[in-house]
Computed example of a mutant assay.
Amino acid sequence: MPTFPTLITRLDALLRQYRPAYHAALRPPVSAAAVAAFEAEFDLRLPAGLRQWLDWHDGQPPELFEALVGMYSWPSLEDMAATMRINRELLADGDFAPYWWQPAWLPFLTNGSGDHLCLDPEGTFTGRPGQLIEHWHDGPERTVVFPSLSAWLAAVVQAYEAAVVGQKRLTDEQAEDLELNSPAGFPLEFRAE
């Protein structure tokens, strides 16, 4: 598998060429001060891949509703922090069933309706740190969709590269229709109950 920075470079080139308006609207890279504040607030260290992801761009602005891929858009680090604050508070108040939310989950993608794709540094359900897990705000299904952020990004790049063949541009609707191929053995289905 290509290195994570190589995959980011490939995705950057794809977005720049085939979704130029989306690419141009992405936020600048996250600042070191913002990362330090985030890590201090949540008492954790961002995994290297997620840090590289945010060093590329700090997500998309809230007024940009188009998806990065499939149903998911890309929140900023501050938006991630807001989601974590709310869910940690609800967890602390006893409002969640077991595994509804875990304090270390990093919600790096959102569908804008309270659902997230989270990087799970602890390996909830499987014991595999670094996996990506779907969190539904109103349902107990928890699906581990990729074993790592690198595997997910490789699938994103492959989906984009397949979709742009013979295209001059990729519409926002086409980006929403992109389906990612999970590696063998995934997805893994669990329930937060």
Rank of each mutant, 00 (worst) to 15 (best):
Y72M: 11
H137N: 03
P121H: 13
W56D: 02
Q102E: 12
L54V: 01
G127H: 08
N111F: 02
F65W: 15
L132T: 11
E134A: 12
L119C: 15
A67T: 14
E122W: 05
P121V: 10
D79C: 00
V69G: 03
R88S: 09
W74V: 00
W100P: 01
V144C: 05
S113G: 08
V69T: 15
E134D: 11
L90Y: 14
G112T: 04
P98S: 05
P75Q: 05
S150W: 11
A81M: 02
M80S: 00
D79M: 00
L91A: 10
L106M: 13
D58L: 06
A67I: 03
G94S: 11
D115N: 12
P121L: 13
T143V: 06
A104R: 15
D120R: 15
Q102M: 14
F96A: 02
M84T: 01
I133S: 08
W100E: 06
Q60G: 13
E122S: 08
V144P: 02
P129W: 14
L117T: 02
A104E: 12
L64R: 15
L149Q: 10
S148A: 09
W101Q: 04
E78P: 00
E122H: 11
G112K: 08
P147R: 14
I133F: 07
A97Y: 09
I86T: 12
G94N: 07
Y99D: 03
R128D: 04
A92E: 13
H57L: 04
H135L: 15
A81G: 04
G130H: 09
A67F: 10
S73I: 11
R128P: 01
A92V: 11
W53M: 07
S150I: 09
V145Q: 06
T126F: 03
P140Q: 12
V69I: 15
L149G: 10
M80L: 01
S148Y: 10
L106V: 08
G59E: 00
P62I: 12
M84P: 01
P61Q: 14
Q52C: 12
T124R: 05
P75Y: 05
P107C: 04
S113R: 12
E134Q: 09
Q131L: 13
P147Y: 03
H135P: 06
G94H: 04
A82R: 11
R128L: 05
L109G: 03
D93M: 13
L132Q: 04
F146T: 04
T126C: 08
W136R: 09
H116G: 01
F125P: 01
F65M: 14
V69K: 11
M71I: 05
N111G: 03
E63I: 06
F108Y: 15
G94T: 09
D115K: 05
P140V: 07
W56N: 02
E89H: 05
F146W: 06
F146G: 04
P62Q: 10
L68I: 09
P129A: 08
F108D: 00
P62V: 10
S73M: 07
P107Y: 05
H137R: 14
R85M: 02
M80W: 00
H57I: 10
R142N: 04
